[in-house]
Amino acid sequence: MSTEAANTNRADMIVCENVDKWYGDFQALKDVSATIAEQEVVVVLGPSGSGKSTLIRCINRLEAHQQGTIIVDGVELTNDLRNIEKIRSEVGMVFQQFNLFPHLSVIDNVTLAPKWVRKMPKAAAEKKAEELLEMVGIPEQAEKYPGQLSGGQQQRVAIARALAMEPRIMLFDEPTSALDPEMIKEVLDVMKDLAHGGMTMMVVTHEMGFAREVADRIIFMESGEIVEVGTPEHFFTNPTEDRTKLFLSQIL
């Protein structure tokens, strides 16, 4: 297994060591080890059911891993309530199904966590939210409700909501899978801007174009294992593992 770090001079933001996770009989993660450095953009690829989503959900402690160690920004994920609180406010997450709060307006969706978790004054939180909505390109929708927005707009609000906590790491769980084709680009553009701005990102996606263009490294997973890790050129042009080749031949 290749464990070379792309940038050894930078601090490690996420360190997974020998992580195992079971759902009942089913082992979703098998001895997964990976390291992600600061400002690095890592794309996780793999067939469905390969444990990609489980991995990034473990990093946010939406799921608890059962064996091994996960350290995020120097804090180990254990049962310690304080650590969980700390990680959650430092790691932003974007979901496949957006998961916006339907009963809150867009601006309330974005300001909720800064106000109640970061304890930011209301005015400051709203100012920040407006900036973020500007950044994701929908400043005029602030007073609307999620149900009144298109899928692409909803996903961009979801990104703004995650960014409002000023996270140091962003996790994306198939952010474009639930979108109509014409809306995928607007979301990917926001993600590219984010990557170019130096955000540490871990992205599960099926968008090969995005992976090739933006990723610093690609992790390929299958049946809960990390099969291959490498740069985009290495991965798309000259993969070493047979399983990777098979996967690429199926989707390209």
């Binding site: 160690t69 309530l81 969980i84």
Partner: peptide
């Protein structure tokens, strides 16, 4: 890092 947190912070 692997140590138990004080009991009042352990989620379980």
């Amino acid at each position: 890092h692997h140590q138990r947190p004080p009991f009042y912070r352990d989620a379980t």
